[in-house]
Simulated scan of single mutants.
Amino acid sequence: MILRRYLTGIFLGWTAAVLLGLVVLLQLLDLLDKTSEVLQRGGPADIGRYALLRLPTMLGQLIPLAVLVGAILTFRRLAGTLEITALRALGLGAWRILGAVLPACVLAVALQAALLLAIAPRTERALADWWDSQGVEGQPVALAQRLWLRNGAEIVSVEAASLDGRSLAGILLVRRDAEGRALERIDARRAIHGPEGWRLLQLRLVRPGETRPQSLAELAWADGPSPEAIRDLARPIAAQPLDRLLAGQRGEGAVTRGPAFYATRLQAVTATMVAPFVMLLLAAPAAFGLPRQADGYRRGGIGLALGLGYLVVNGLLNAMGEAGGLGPHLAAWTAPLVFALVGLLRLWHEEA
């Protein structure tokens, strides 16, 4: 218990210091790029607002890297003071030492899950809404590119959407049957969401077999997507809550991506939770070697290179999975399993 508390304290101290340093550095770089745009949307106080809303996303993304560097520094410090040598002389192997800092990794995983799945989706949405708040409230704002989405059996396209998602312009709506055959096509100039739901305004309706379109002043759109879904799809954010990913995988509600994207993202979120443990394995060989041996620093450098390689390879495989080029499980779990195996083999080699 005393050993666990001692090693956990050192490890958490180094990891927190590294995390703070990385966040401050990235925040400064981000603010250098965005300060002029932030000032155009408000005053100097909004710089702090922007930085605060960006903070949860940065923290969640940097935790695995902070665990890697923090573990390397912790093990090098213990090796430098010969504490590792003393522990091994007492019969404590590398696995006992790693087990002593395991609770700190569990804490890092819990913090990462809370940031990426609960806090970051809210702060990113708040930042996106504030960033786009220069438009006239309640009036459709032209999108950078036309939005296409699937809403149940319907195919919907929108040219402009208000910031709250309750007013649309340039709507194309194709209604289909259960087998995917088009039942009717609707071109509407406007759509407004009120207490009774959506109303399409100034529209033309065409059905298969009819030679002339029907012109209507108004038509109810009972099965239309929710304003919140329109808002989120028209101005998407990177962080997605767990319930949205699960609904997207099942094809429920309005979506702009196929099932492969949501299935891969779900697996990737789960795999991200094991990243701190993989980083700890990759950093463990840094504990071996005597203080004056350059070989100890080489071990730490190899661990750092492997950790950065893991982040790069994992990101590439996830992107391929989201595009449908790889299966969700293969895309999300290949990098964690391969690099964890590499860490285990390196640790076994040091113990042999």
Rank of each mutant, 00 (worst) to 15 (best):
R257W: 06
R207F: 03
G258Y: 10
I302K: 05
D223H: 11
A239G: 02
P225Y: 08
I237E: 00
I302W: 11
T334L: 12
L242V: 07
D223A: 15
P195M: 14
A275P: 02
V278H: 03
E322G: 01
L245W: 08
M279Q: 05
F277H: 08
L304S: 01
D232I: 01
G309E: 09
E252V: 12
T211S: 15
P195S: 15
R212Q: 15
Y297R: 13
L201K: 14
F261H: 04
I230N: 05
P213K: 09
P259D: 11
T334A: 13
V255A: 13
E228Y: 05
R244N: 03
L246P: 00
R231D: 10
P241Y: 02
A263Q: 13
R244G: 03
N318A: 14
Q202T: 13
R299W: 02
G197V: 12
T256P: 01
L311P: 10
L304G: 01
S226W: 04
W198S: 11
L266E: 05
G315I: 03
Q202C: 03
R207Y: 01
Q249P: 00
V313G: 08
A239D: 00
E322R: 04
L205C: 11
Y262P: 04
A238S: 00
G296D: 04
T272W: 10
A239K: 00
L280R: 02
L316S: 10
I230M: 14
R244D: 13
R231E: 13
P259E: 11
N318H: 11
E218T: 06
M279F: 08
R265N: 03
M320P: 06
P227R: 03
V278K: 01
E322M: 13
Q214I: 12
L282N: 11
L245G: 10
V278S: 04
G325R: 14
T272I: 04
G209Q: 09
P259K: 09
I230W: 11
A260C: 04
G300L: 04
A275Y: 02
A332C: 13
A220I: 05
L290R: 15
F261M: 01
R250H: 10
R299I: 01
A286E: 05
V312K: 03
V274G: 06
A286L: 04
Q267I: 07
L316K: 05
P276R: 06
A331Q: 10
G301E: 03
A229W: 08
L330H: 06
L203C: 05
G303S: 07
G194Q: 14
D232V: 03
A268G: 12
P227F: 09
L280T: 02
E210I: 07
L326R: 03
L308D: 04
A323L: 05
G197N: 13
F288D: 04
R298A: 13
